[in-house]
């Protein structure tokens, strides 16, 4: 089987702040990481590779420096890496991004399984995975915890309201993965990083994947950002220190003041 894993480079979201005066993102000094959900999807693919000797190809879209997340994936064991990088992709929303990723995956030939993180931690949309599946005409299974392959059956455990389902699909199929303890993210050794530099890595432009310009970037994106701004600030917590009797008394006092319990 041939597996594709979609990976994205994202800023470490817990550290992104906004300049309250200009309304612009402060991205300087914010480290870039592999989207954590994609890291789990990658580990899932590598587990399958270990068990069944499948081929794993990484596909990412982003600026040239996004190569580092593809390189990380190859150092961890993926066989090949593709980075879609072209000014024509700039400003793409989830529709246009899905379109470009789907074009690239189609170019790779016969693919049986596409894995992606459930969402990226910068946009938090969870829309690109299903978009890619639709554009490729594949069925989708979203919010998966675990995936197994049994012959030509792909079996996944997915979240649903208040529980989970075990589902089955025939390839090709696209799965989006949540973070689950079955796939603990690993980091490669220096030796593995060095060795991965010899693996095939390609940068593809919009023309390389045969993407039509009117579907790309701002022009091709149905949604537009009207404005970004800081969220309303919460007041700082009123802090108290005290365990046992003291802590208990404080909580009772707060709950009375907030009318959760009667005086």
């Amino acid at each position: 089987m041939n597996i594709v894993v979609c990976v994205k480079q994202v800023p470490d979201s817990t550290e992104v702040k906004i300049n309250p005066e200009t309304g612009h993102l402060i991205r300087a000094g914010v480290p870039s990481i592999i989207n954590p959900y994609d890291h789990f999807a990658l580990q899932a693919a590598l587990e399958l590779k270990k068990k069944h000797d499948f081929k794993v190809t990484l596909v990412s879209m982003g600026p040239p420096q996004a190569k580092s997340v593809v390189q990380l994936g190859m150092a961890l064991g993926a066989d090949e890496g593709i980075l879609l990088s072209d000014m024509a992709f700039a400003g793409s929303d989830t529709w246009s991004t899905s379109y470009a990723l789907a074009r690239a995956i189609r170019k790779l030939g016969k693919i049986d399984l596409v894995l992606a993180g459930m969402q990226a931690i910068d946009g938090d949309t969870a829309q690109t995975g299903p978009g890619v599946a639709q554009q490729l005409g594949m069925p989708q299974v979203t919010f998966c915890e675990h995936v197994d392959v049994d012959g030509r059956r792909i079996i996944a455990r997915k979240l649903i309201d208040g529980g989970y389902e075990i589902v089955e699909a025939r390839p090709p199929v696209l799965l989006t993965m949540i973070m689950h303890k079955d796939y603990v993210p690993r980091y490669p050794s220096f030796l593995a990083v060095n060795a991965s530099l010899k693996k095939p890595f390609h940068v593809w432009s919009a023309a390389d994947i045969g993407a039509e310009p009117q579907f790309l970037g701002l022009k091709g994106s149905p949604t537009q950002v009207d404005k970004i701004y800081p969220p309303p600030q919460r007041e700082k917590a009123a802090m108290f220190t005290g365990s046992g009797q003291e802590g208990m008394a404080k909580i009772l006092q707060i709950m009375k003041a907030e009318h959760f319990i009667e005086e």
């Binding site: 979201s13 931690i121 910068d122 946009g123 938090d124 537009q224 800081p230």
Partner: peptide
């Protein structure tokens, strides 16, 4: 909608479709 784990808010329009 919030983005970046709730660190920023964004207003979004879809005027063309």
């Amino acid at each position: 909608r919030p983005a970046f784990g709730g660190n920023i808010m964004a207003d979004i329009l879809a005027p063309k479709s």
